[in-house]
Design a protein around this nucleic acid. Sequence first.
RNA 1: GCUCCCAUCAUCUAGAGGCCUAGGAUACCGGAUUUUCAUUCCGGCGACAGGGGUUCAAAUCCCCUUGGGAGUACCA
Length: 494
Amino acid sequence: MVRPMTVRVRIAPSPTGDPHVGTGYIGLLNWCFARRHGGKFILRIEDTDRTRCTAESAQNIYTSLKWLGLTYDEGPDVGGDRGPYVQSERVKLGIYKRYADQLINQGDAYPCFCTSETLDGMRKAQMAAKLPIMYDRRCRGLGSAEAARRVAAGEPHVVRMKTPLEGDFSYKDRLRAKPTVKAWADIDDQVLLKGDGWPTYHLAAVVDDHLMGITHVIRAEEWLNSLPKHIWLNQHFGFTPPEYVHVGLLRNADKSKISKRKNPTSLLWYRQQGYLPEALLNFLAQLGHSHPDGIEQFSIQDMAAFFDLDRINVAGPVFDLKKLDHLQGLWFRQLTPERMRDEVVRAIDDRFAQLFPLVRERLTRGADFISLAEPFYAVSVNHRVDELVPKGHEAAQIRTVLEVFAKALKEVQAADTWTIAATEAAVRAACAAEIAKAPEDAAVAALWSPKIAFSALRVAVTGRTNSPPLFETVAAVGAVRCLERLTAATVRLR
RNA sequence: GCUCCCAUCAUCUAGAGGCCUAGGAUACCGGAUUUUCAUUCCGGCGACAGGGGUUCAAAUCCCCUUGGGAGUACCA
């Protein structure tokens, strides 16, 4: 009789940008698996990309996970005996360097002195020749003595793994009928240690999963392609690999990997919009998994009782807010009057400090706040065609204006810089570009003037002809809702 | 381009060879209840991607095609 091992699972988000709904999804799966099997659920912060990670973002991950109720047994802000749980701190302890050195000493990894320019050139040539794009291993041929001498001389370098040159790799994922098989020849000599001495994801994750005693790595399918590298690393370090399980990726309506341009992906957004954690979790729980009795509404505590890793559907589910809204309605209406009241107050209060300065000078009585701030709280607004289209202009013209603005603002959203200044700059630049296309045309200049074009934008975003200053309004309404309304307005003008 | 993964209603899914003329939920459309609206209830629309096998029997197993997705970074 084999003694069952204690399950230890983790999520390992990277603190870049807003806390992601995908982190919530994978977190839920891991949380349920741990709870179902009486194991531990661990949070590890993977901040090895020094240019993109921020402390604020890490903080948002902690608060979002707590908001959702996905409590972790070990993590940066809760401690645990396998810490530290933040990789940048582990870098300082020299952990990854030590393992990289082990591989070099074993002859399983080598220093590479190629510059990013030579690498770029190589990739371009491979692309032109329609060859697989991968490192040509030129530094692998360097003698170890020469390599060591150049490293000692301080020459900039990375450390790459010596991927096998032939043979096949095979791994049976429990969610797939057949084993994943790949030819080693197709697998790149992955960079393990970057030029700055920090580890890449692959090295850091494998080392930490082992050191933290992780038994099952339940992660998104985007990692399936690098699985051979991870198994290889485990083997060459002498580790017993955890079981790797890959689940489907959350998708946009067009089936592409979920992205903020096409869906609200920030957990912060869901909270700000008044979604209940119970509802969001319930929704996420039905993506790729279902209640065995077909019950639609259930809590994560219920889910922990019936969760079955083997029943996960690996086809990536489309993320559909309509279904979330339905669940949200069910959960919200079942709230006790006390808790519902708290939610109402919180919904208003959370945005009060942000909105109050915008409406203050327009108030006559306290209660006016409700009507003035309504477009900021509303899920959607109604557009009147006669308000959208200024006198003397055609609906088609205004539709074009709004489409151009939407395109420009989507760029701002994608760049994660949704501020008063950035949205204004983008819209003004768009106007200038349109006017520049027909410098002599007075009608074009009139259409793209602030008076006309901005008026259309205001109505599109607020559903009204009057509002606080335009770009303060655009910024406060937020990227997701703003873009939704722009789209709705253009549809209205069709 | 190359490598890998996936494939049931518009969407989320049930279905692990006969219980399937494919079940549930969302959305949508109707009807009932509600002085309105929302809720709730009832009904409707609606899918096994295609083609070959295997089998007495295939949504379920195998193969091919097609379609979709991901990866291809000194990002994770």
